[in-house]
Amino acid sequence: MSDVARLAGVSIKTVSRVVNAEPGVHADTAGRVLAAIERLGFRRNVGALNLRRGLSTGTIGLVLEDVGNPFYSGLTRAVEEVARGFGRQVLTGSSDENADRERELALEFCARRVDGLIVVPAGLRHGYLMPEITSGMPVVFVDRPAGDVLADTVLVDNLEGAAAAVAHLVAHGHRRVAFLGDSPDIFTATERLRGFREGCAKAGIPYDETLVAMGPHTAAGVASVLRRLLGGRAPATAVLTGNNRITVHVLRAIAGSRRRPALIGFDDFELADLLEPPVSVVAIDPATLGRAAAELLFNRLGGDTAAPRRLVLPVRLIPRGSGELRPGSRR
């Protein structure tokens, strides 16, 4: 507190009153104190008593895109299982793909003095975590890399997965392959698009930008895009989707259609193997992803001081039927 008081030009007592939200501090004075705290990288310490006693808070923080997405719920469960083995509990929050919300959650967990942090990045700026990283708190980024800090990262092979899917569709007679991806400012979306483009080149078919649709997709939006892609004089005969939510929207949009495109989706999802036809997917095991991130984190908590690691986990193409439909297939 003395550093904050000196920088803000106030007494230690005033700093204490601002930090503890006590009344009687002029707004301008409080603003100077808060600015000094931000500049010095200090954080509100909810677990100060335990730390003074030399105890761990017994928690780690996990910031996800959406805990309601089955992919991230599987990742969360794996992190919890690893953490339980080390006697820790997991605090979890959803960023909803909002960079400000991600920062808010991450700093809230830091304020509660979690022992470590696992983050699925929603934004590209993570310098706000440097005070924690330099003080020794381990941070692991998962599914996507951090934008501007060097830290442990666990990814999947998005490029190879998309390229393999294109090769599979071309092997089944398709030359007009469409790609429906997520927002282009998301790392996984751009990597899968890049893999799609490279896959077209390797498979000997032209990359056609008119067959690509990127952006946050609603059910209505996907249906509209599909009407364009599957209509006209040179329609797409096959579709590769960039994540499981888009895949589900596509399935709804083509339900009841007599002529169906071949379909391969990124990310597996529940009951995909029971649909008619069963849905072919590029499978990413969220449990493996979560476990790898948690193990990296606990290795750091155990004293590992090696340079930051970047792990890229393989994906697996699972042919079930929808990706094996020939051009012009009918129900």
Rank of each mutant, 00 (worst) to 15 (best):
V212H: 12
G215P: 13
T218A: 10
T218H: 09
A219S: 14
A219R: 15
A220F: 11
G221I: 03
A223Y: 04
L226H: 05
R227W: 06
R227I: 04
L229P: 01
L230R: 00
G231Y: 01
G231W: 02
G232F: 00
R233L: 01
A234F: 14
A234V: 15
A234S: 15
A236T: 10
A238G: 09
V239K: 05
L240D: 04
T241L: 01
T241D: 03
T241R: 03
G242H: 05
N243T: 01
N243V: 01
N244V: 02
N244C: 05
N244G: 04
I246N: 01
T247L: 04
T247R: 03
H249Y: 13
H249A: 14
V250M: 10
V250L: 14
L251C: 05
L251I: 02
A253Q: 09
A253T: 06
A253W: 11
S257N: 14
S257M: 15
R258A: 15
R258E: 14
R258M: 13
R259I: 08
R259L: 06
R259C: 07
R260S: 08
R260Q: 13
R260I: 13
P261H: 04
A262W: 05
A262V: 03
L263V: 10
I264N: 00
D268Y: 12
D268N: 13
F269P: 03
F269N: 02
F269H: 05
E270W: 13
L271P: 10
A272Q: 11
D273Y: 12
D273Q: 12
L274T: 14
L274W: 10
P277Y: 04
P278E: 06
S280F: 06
S280C: 07
V282R: 00
A283K: 10
